[in-house]
């Protein structure tokens, strides 16, 4: 177990260092200068040079990389070029939209997908199975931003039950949850579809295993076999997908955040790239990489929890 954890942990650290290099180099190559973007068409080259100096953009690349790393080590993410406030502040504000949204969508998709997948697998070839397969096909095919627009058209424009977007802040938790509901549904639909298909096929595979027959032969009834042996073993691929989905939900919500104009991480990165607010882009991207690697790390540990063979290593 310890060796397993140490190996996982080392790979986490290496991924982060490699990621920081890749992000830094990618942003070095991207054309476009933050200072001239901020000052617009009328600024003189001299004014641009003044601003570049003020933002510390005129230092050599190596110096800038190491001062970035040193800052991170000390917990200093720097000051946003455009907003002129600490990057940490910006990210913390946004994470309180993106993280709850991702968790909300994840909870929705899991709550829908697991029972649906189990239902389909246990009624293989039956009406329930065919319906689930058809519905999930649809759920995967529908682009989530378009589904989001449909939700807005129905619930905000026609029924007027929800507002069309925006986020009121957590001072009123009920209103905040309500504002996240339509986006979470839009995000959850394709995820739930994928997840329920994975659950179904994984469970079907498990149900064919020898140990299931053995368990039945031992005298356990179908239900006991299903819950004690089959579902538990079938969860491993589901967990993998779940881990990947969480990363997607946290970073891939850019379009949904635009459809519902939510001030989340995706939109922050999107806006910052357009405005060449590179210091925000690199820190926010690194933070996402960190989140994703940590989630993968946690998923690996979760494997160990459900699979005793991994625990022994």
């Amino acid at each position: 177990m310890l060796r397993y954890l140490t190996a996982r942990f080392a790979s986490l650290a290496v991924s982060l260092i490699v990621a920081s290099l890749v992000i830094f180099l990618a942003l070095e190559v991207v054309p476009g200068d933050p200072a001239s973007f901020m000052l617009g068409l009328e600024a003189s080259p001299e004014t641009v040079a003044n601003l570049r100096h003020e933002l510390g953009l005129d230092a050599p690349a190596v110096t800038r990389y190491f001062s970035w790393m040193a800052g991170l080590a000390a917990g200093d993410f720097g000051i946003s070029y455009t907003y002129r406030v600490p990057v940490v502040e910006l990210i913390l504000d946004r994470i309180w939209v993106s993280l709850p949204l991702a968790l909300y969508a994840l909870a929705l998709s899991t709550l829908i997908a697991l029972p649906v997948g189990i239902l389909a697998a246990t009624h293989r070839g039956g009406i329930a199975d065919i319906t689930v397969m058809g519905a999930t096909q649809f759920g995967i095919a529908v682009p989530n931003f378009w589904f989001g627009m449909l939700l807005v058209a129905l619930f905000a424009l026609t029924l007027r039950l929800f507002s069309a977007g925006g986020f009121p802040g957590w001072s009123d938790p009920a209103a905040a949850l309500k504002a996240l509901t339509l986006p979470a549904i839009a995000l959850a639909l394709p995820q739930a579809s994928i997840l329920s298909r994975v659950m179904r096929s994984s469970l079907l595979d498990t149900l064919d295993e020898d140990y299931i027959r053995t368990a039945r032969a031992k005298g356990l009834n179908r239900r006991q076999v299903l819950w004690r042996h089959a579902v538990r073993n079938a969860l491993i691929p589901v967990l993998t997908i779940l881990g990947l989905q969480f990363s997607f939900l946290i970073s891939g919500a850019i379009i949904i955040e635009n459809v519902f104009y939510l001030p989340g991480m995706g939109r922050l990165i999107f806006q910052s790239i357009a405005a060449r607010d590179l210091i925000v882009v690199k820190n926010a991207s690194l933070l996402l990489v960190m989140t994703i690697t940590v989630v993968t790390f946690l998923v690996d540990i979760a494997y160990a929890a459900v699979d005793p063979r991994l625990r022994k290593r």
Partner: peptide
């Protein structure tokens, strides 16, 4: 309010937000 997406802008205006 800052709404960059034209479709979202339409919905926000139409819904009375």
């Amino acid at each position: 309010r800052f709404i960059s997406d034209p479709t979202a802008a339409f919905a926000a205006m139409m819904s009375g937000d």
